[in-house]
Computed example of a mutant assay.
Amino acid sequence: MKVKKASLLTKIVVLALLIAAATALLNLQHKITAAQADLAQAQSEVAAQKQINADLADAVENSDDPERQTDIARDKLGLVEPGEYVFYFTD
Protein backbone atom coordinates (compact mmCIF):
# COMPACT_ATOMS: atom_id res chain seq x y z
CA MET A 1 0.00 0.00 0.00
CA LYS A 2 1.27 3.40 -1.02
CA VAL A 3 0.92 6.41 1.26
CA LYS A 4 0.54 9.65 -0.60
CA LYS A 5 2.53 12.53 0.88
CA ALA A 6 0.90 15.92 1.24
CA SER A 7 2.02 18.46 -1.28
CA LEU A 8 3.71 21.71 -0.33
CA LEU A 9 0.54 23.64 -1.24
CA THR A 10 -1.54 21.50 1.13
CA LYS A 11 0.93 22.10 3.95
CA ILE A 12 0.86 25.85 3.35
CA VAL A 13 -2.97 25.89 3.34
CA VAL A 14 -3.13 23.90 6.60
CA LEU A 15 -0.54 26.20 8.19
CA ALA A 16 -2.49 29.29 7.07
CA LEU A 17 -5.69 27.85 8.54
CA LEU A 18 -3.96 27.12 11.84
CA ILE A 19 -2.57 30.66 11.99
CA ALA A 20 -6.00 32.10 11.20
CA ALA A 21 -7.62 29.97 13.91
CA ALA A 22 -5.00 30.98 16.47
CA THR A 23 -5.44 34.66 15.58
CA ALA A 24 -9.22 34.36 15.88
CA LEU A 25 -8.89 32.68 19.29
CA LEU A 26 -6.54 35.39 20.57
CA ASN A 27 -8.91 38.09 19.32
CA LEU A 28 -11.82 36.34 21.02
CA GLN A 29 -9.85 36.07 24.26
CA HIS A 30 -9.17 39.81 24.13
CA LYS A 31 -12.88 40.53 23.63
CA ILE A 32 -13.81 38.26 26.54
CA THR A 33 -11.33 40.03 28.82
CA ALA A 34 -12.69 43.44 27.82
CA ALA A 35 -16.27 42.25 28.38
CA GLN A 36 -15.36 40.93 31.84
CA ALA A 37 -13.83 44.30 32.73
CA ASP A 38 -16.99 46.07 31.52
CA LEU A 39 -19.12 43.69 33.59
CA ALA A 40 -17.05 44.34 36.72
CA GLN A 41 -17.38 48.11 36.17
CA ALA A 42 -21.15 47.82 35.68
CA GLN A 43 -21.51 45.69 38.81
CA SER A 44 -19.55 48.28 40.79
CA GLU A 45 -21.81 51.06 39.50
CA VAL A 46 -24.92 49.04 40.36
CA ALA A 47 -23.66 48.49 43.92
CA ALA A 48 -22.92 52.20 44.33
CA GLN A 49 -26.35 53.14 42.99
CA LYS A 50 -28.04 50.65 45.34
CA GLN A 51 -26.27 52.30 48.27
CA ILE A 52 -27.41 55.74 47.10
CA ASN A 53 -30.97 54.44 46.73
CA ALA A 54 -30.88 52.94 50.24
CA ASP A 55 -29.62 56.24 51.68
CA LEU A 56 -32.36 58.16 49.89
CA ALA A 57 -35.02 55.70 51.03
CA ASP A 58 -33.78 56.12 54.60
CA ALA A 59 -33.90 59.91 54.24
CA VAL A 60 -37.48 59.77 52.97
CA GLU A 61 -38.51 57.28 55.65
CA ASN A 62 -37.06 59.41 58.45
CA SER A 63 -37.86 62.84 57.02
CA ASP A 64 -40.18 63.70 59.91
CA ASP A 65 -37.55 62.97 62.59
CA PRO A 66 -36.94 66.23 64.50
CA GLU A 67 -33.29 65.37 65.15
CA ARG A 68 -32.71 64.82 61.44
CA GLN A 69 -34.45 68.10 60.62
CA THR A 70 -32.21 69.89 63.12
CA ASP A 71 -29.10 68.34 61.56
CA ILE A 72 -30.19 69.41 58.08
CA ALA A 73 -30.97 72.94 59.29
CA ARG A 74 -27.53 73.22 60.91
CA ASP A 75 -25.37 71.49 58.30
CA LYS A 76 -27.01 72.43 55.01
CA LEU A 77 -28.79 75.69 55.81
CA GLY A 78 -26.40 77.10 58.41
CA LEU A 79 -29.19 77.83 60.89
CA VAL A 80 -28.66 78.03 64.65
CA GLU A 81 -30.83 77.84 67.76
CA PRO A 82 -31.97 81.16 69.29
CA GLY A 83 -29.21 82.58 71.47
CA GLU A 84 -26.61 80.24 69.94
CA TYR A 85 -23.42 81.56 68.36
CA VAL A 86 -21.23 79.93 65.74
CA PHE A 87 -17.54 80.64 65.59
CA TYR A 88 -15.48 80.00 62.46
CA PHE A 89 -11.75 79.67 62.83
CA THR A 90 -9.52 80.62 59.94
CA ASP A 91 -5.81 80.19 59.50
Results as ranks from 00 to 15, higher is better:
50 K>M: 15
22 A>R: 08
83 G>P: 08
88 Y>T: 15
38 D>Y: 00
28 L>I: 04
16 A>C: 04
39 L>D: 05
3 V>T: 15
67 E>G: 13
84 E>T: 10
72 I>S: 02
71 D>I: 11
24 A>K: 00
6 A>V: 06
34 A>T: 12
22 A>F: 07
57 A>Q: 11
10 T>V: 08
47 A>V: 10
71 D>M: 11
67 E>W: 10
46 V>L: 14
34 A>G: 06
4 K>R: 05
69 Q>D: 02
73 A>T: 06
32 I>L: 08
27 N>R: 13
67 E>K: 14
87 F>I: 15
79 L>H: 13
31 K>R: 08
77 L>Y: 08
37 A>W: 00
13 V>C: 03
88 Y>H: 02
87 F>A: 14
43 Q>S: 06
81 E>Y: 11
52 I>H: 05
33 T>K: 03
27 N>A: 15
39 L>G: 01
73 A>M: 06
47 A>D: 12
81 E>K: 13
65 D>F: 00
87 F>G: 08
45 E>Y: 07
42 A>S: 12
60 V>C: 02
26 L>A: 05
12 I>V: 07
48 A>L: 11
7 S>E: 14
52 I>S: 08
64 D>W: 00
85 Y>V: 14
82 P>F: 12
59 A>F: 07
18 L>R: 09
29 Q>C: 04
20 A>E: 05
57 A>W: 01
29 Q>I: 09
65 D>C: 02
49 Q>N: 11
65 D>H: 01
41 Q>P: 01
14 V>H: 00
28 L>N: 01
2 K>I: 15
29 Q>K: 13
58 D>F: 07
34 A>L: 12
86 V>N: 04
72 I>L: 11
12 I>N: 01
22 A>M: 04
63 S>F: 11
53 N>I: 15
89 F>W: 14
35 A>S: 05
33 T>P: 00
39 L>K: 10
80 V>Y: 12
29 Q>N: 12
86 V>I: 15
79 L>S: 13
75 D>C: 02
76 K>T: 11
80 V>T: 15
31 K>G: 00
9 L>M: 12
90 T>I: 14
25 L>N: 03
72 I>W: 13
74 R>A: 14
